[in-house]
Design a protein around this nucleic acid. Structure first.
Lengths: 150, 150
DNA sequence: CAACGTATGTCAGGATACTGACATGAGTCA
DNA sequence: TGACTCATGTCAGTATCCTGACATACGTTG
């Protein structure tokens, strides 16, 4: 009756965490000289792609809570990287937008992050990337559905 | 010259984070009724597979700092799930081992976590799993090497 | 219209993890 | 042997993030 447990060396979940952790560490490293964190960068990138995103939407996109994103947005606003209207145009949602300065900051960060992604993708064929994409998307879908149903 | 940035919807890095985040959330959810966190579980699982691991080694394996693992081990020791010798047999390393109680706790946790992994693997073929394994391992390798070299 | 459920922004409090630093022990090399 | 480097366990302080809670605003549904 040897309860073998989950062999971590062969666990896809462990490997997933390992890869994510390594990616985050690599990103933090190249972002640090710019005075930015990964969450910082994620926020700016989200705003570049979808201007006018609200605090809560940014939080979900960057995998943090509303409160955490709130303090981050305050500092970004203080530094002049983003702007939010003093009062909500509709409802309570304060649509956030990048300033030109924020856009420049994002450009620097994007260059740094891109170098990391190039490293990460090194050794992967096109079809590998496509496979990874398809598989990861499936995993997210399976986990999300089940999590919500419990 | 539209600086397009990295389209997050098509970024493998973002998807990796998303998958890892979803997995962690799902694990926290099934572990909470047992009064355990993911780090908790990772520590016990590591000890089951490699008895006698040191504090620092456990920390690396669970992706936290030595200090964090230290306080976790104290609580585990207090609860009687693990044991450490009062004095180091050699050097400063205190080899940690599971107690029978810890082993039982781990068994419960393993069952819970296994259900999550089953959900995650649902919809993945055998060859998908093999591909995911190979690709993730390659990513970790690429990132680790480059990170260390900078 | 009114009541309900949902989502948002924000505040306060507490838990958690990290950075920095120190002393100790082991291994290496001249 | 002695100086050097490295890794470990631990302590203190700080930063970070989360949980809980509240008031507000919108959409729906009776």
């Amino acid at each position: 009756m040897s309860q073998e447990g989950v062999d971590l060396d062969k666990s896809l979940g462990y490997l997933l965490k390992e890869a994510s952790s390594a990616l985050r560490a690599a990103m933090e490293e190249v972002l640090r000289p710019l005075g930015m964190s990964v969450t910082h960068y994620a926020c700016l990138e989200l705003l570049a792609q979808r201007p006018g995103l609200s605090n809560s939407e940014l939080a979900r996109g960057a995998f943090v809570t509303r409160q955490t994103m709130n303090v981050l947005l305050r500092s970004l606003e203080r530094d002049g990287d983003v702007t939010r209207p003093a009062e909500a145009p509709v409802g309570k949602v304060l649509p956030t937008r990048l300033t030109p300065r924020g856009r420049r900051r994002l450009e620097q960060a994007t260059a740094a992050v891109r170098s990391v992604e190039v490293r990460m993708l090194a050794g992967m064929t096109e079809s590998d990337q496509a496979d990874a994409f398809r598989i990861l998307k499936g995993m997210v879908h399976s986990l999300r559905d089940s999590t919500a149903s419990s």
